[in-house]
Amino acid sequence: MAQTTQQQESRGRKLGRRRASGRGTIAPYLFLLPFFLIYATFLVYPVLAAFRLSFFESSGFGGDTFTGLDNYVRLAQDPRYLEALKNTTLYALASVFVLSPLALLVAVTIRSFVVPTAAFKSFYRIVFFLPFITSFVVIALMFNLVFNNDFGLLNNALSAVGLPTVDWLKNEQVSLLAIVMVGIWTFLGINALYFLTGLQNIPEEVIEAAAVDGANRLQTFWRITLPLLRPVILFVIVQATIFSYQLFEIPFLLTNGGPSDSTLTLAIYLYEVGFREFDRGYASAIGYSLAIIAIVLAAAQLLLARRFDR
């Protein structure tokens, strides 16, 4: 009996070691398999297939014809693509130079003495975050009413203070500005939240030390807070750039890229070419150009940040 117990213990220890090392069993791989299968089927395969397709003429129901770099050459000569690139870049610039500083301002304000109690701080955090979890369709419906030329909230407010009104979604001179405004409203909260997290991670002692050394609030912000926030600033700017180049839902629902292509973005143009004109090869080239632009810009920002760190 004693021998049997010893044998069982010994076997148990061996099994435990084997389990701990993961050797000799395929169970972990089986558990991971569904993820990798889905990942390969719905991400890796489409990405590779689209890359191949970008070198082909592929439209309608016919077969594909290899055309080399023709689709990429066509990009440089396509006025609608260039217009979409310009609009998307302007939106990305607004995200980086308007949205991100505003989000930082909101974060600093919520964290500062301006918002006195913890309850108020939580309240404002939720208020600013709510637009981010609101459906884009709901946002579009709401801003269609806000921007309406005849009875919209914005034009009523403008005329109430004696300013001229404008047809925000149908005037090509201001339609992109309207999209930027909706973008700021939607994404301000999530970006402020990133900054808030960064601010919370700055040690209080450093701020106190600065105060002891005689730094006022502004000096502390410029010399202490901002430098210590650099990793978060970098993250916010990189993700704002990447997501800006993928902008689709808001302009698609509000203006459908118009009027006269004034709010056409790369993602909307890709959709039009791929799913309305069924020019799949060219749409794939547009998609890859979009990915390359986002990667290059993100890499440039990271390199720039590294240079600043030195």
Binding site: N144, D150, K170, L253, T255, N256, G258
Partner: peptide, 19 residues
């Protein structure tokens, strides 16, 4: 006048009908 329309319905959306 110019019809009150939106991008999602550029012909006769509710605003147009309401007018």
């Amino acid at each position: 006048g110019i019809a009150s329309v939106v991008a999602s319905d550029n012909w006769y959306p509710p605003q147009y009908r309401a007018a």
